[in-house]
Simulated assay, not measured.
Amino acid sequence: MREDPVSVQDLRHQLRSLRRQLDEQPGLSLQERDDIHALIDRIEDRLRTGDAGPHAGLTGGVTRAAERFEAGHPKVAGTLRSIGVALANIGI
């Protein structure tokens, strides 16, 4: 993983923002919340371990989640897309 402290810091900020958004979205089902929280946890684990190299499953999961929420929850989808960009910027 390429170490870019600004990008990693930005990604962590976006993950916190997404967690807040999930708490503020009354229209999300429990399953939808759980799915996104699991994705956030995987990303945070990846940042903690410093596991190098791309993970198609992780970035693909972010992309699929953004597409899934685009129509009903555009703010959540936008944050997910930003997280995907941040992941790419740090080489995940």
Rank of each mutant, 00 (worst) to 15 (best):
S29Y: 14
I92A: 02
L30M: 02
R81D: 10
A88T: 10
S29I: 08
T59M: 00
Q31F: 13
A88K: 11
A66D: 10
A66K: 11
N89Q: 13
H37Y: 12
R12T: 05
P5V: 05
L39M: 11
A56Y: 03
P5S: 13
R12Q: 09
P26C: 00
Q14K: 13
D10L: 09
E3V: 07
A71W: 03
V6R: 15
D35G: 09
R19P: 05
F69S: 04
Q21V: 15
R12Y: 09
R68K: 13
L18H: 15
L39R: 10
E67H: 13
V62S: 02
I90P: 06
Q9A: 15
Q25H: 00
D41K: 05
G91A: 09
L58V: 08
L15Q: 00
E44N: 05
A77D: 06
A38Y: 09
A65H: 10
H13W: 09
A56F: 05
T49P: 12
I92W: 06
E70V: 06
H55E: 14
L87T: 10
E3C: 02
R20Q: 12
S7Q: 07
I92Q: 01
A66I: 08
Q31T: 10
Q14S: 12
P26Y: 01
H13R: 11
I90N: 12
D35P: 13
G50A: 08
L22I: 02
G72S: 04
G61I: 15
G72F: 01
A56R: 04
A38P: 04
Q31L: 04
I92F: 00
E3S: 10
G57N: 07
R68V: 03
